[in-house]
Amino acid sequence: MSTLDVSHVTYRYGPKVALDDVSFALERGRFCALLGPNGAGKSTLFSLLTRLLVTREGRITVAGHDLAREPRAALGKIGVVFQQQTLDLDMTVLQNLRYFAALQGLSGAAAQRNIDAALDRLAMRERAGEKARALNGGHRRRMEIARALIHDPEVLLLDEPTVGLDTASRQSITAHVHDLADGGLSVLWATHLVDEIRPRDDVVVLHQGHVLAHDDAAAISGEKSLIDAFIAMTGKAPEERVAL
């Protein structure tokens, strides 16, 4: 059963079509990379998935809940890591996690249990009292990922989560999120970096608001490397900056 289902979604900024009839589904326990150059419509799609934007054209369901009709139930099943860093740097790690738990309406023993689990996942229990400002970029990102999981979502959305990180942190975070997918979470990972994608991962290729392909990475690349397959499909490398 698919946990995230995007069906015939179109979105316009005025006359400009940012997403055109986008459809794909995400299976439970799968790591799905949303691959596209800058300006392909990835961030717009993320805003629609998190209901920062809404559209009348198309339908999005999360764990069986229609995002338009039951927004709260659907949002409760989603964990989000935005491209921009959203930690309060003046609060401690623990305070940040508690604040987020409270925003989700969690308190008391239930919140504490989930926060402890998050801290363990990060191996950061002993650093819980430190200010978020004291953490390096990689740790901040890991913390945001752990925070996004506090309310036990079924789908984890990450919008270019490795932007601005060094290679070691990038690899470790990519591996960490692959592990989360192996643990049963559905992951949608927006990126323009093909080296973050493993052969067995699902890949949705998004280009100029269209879905060009949806298959596992090995099938999409075929004989070629994934990057060559991508260039053949779109005529440009995913790193290239393309104005929308």
Partner: peptide, 18 residues
């Protein structure tokens, strides 16, 4: 601008309440 508003707006509690 900093994005923490998004955190608030994507909560499962109703937006008007937050």
């Amino acid at each position: 601008e900093m994005g923490s508003m998004r955190l608030l707006l994507t909560s499962r509690l109703p937006r008007w309440w937050l």
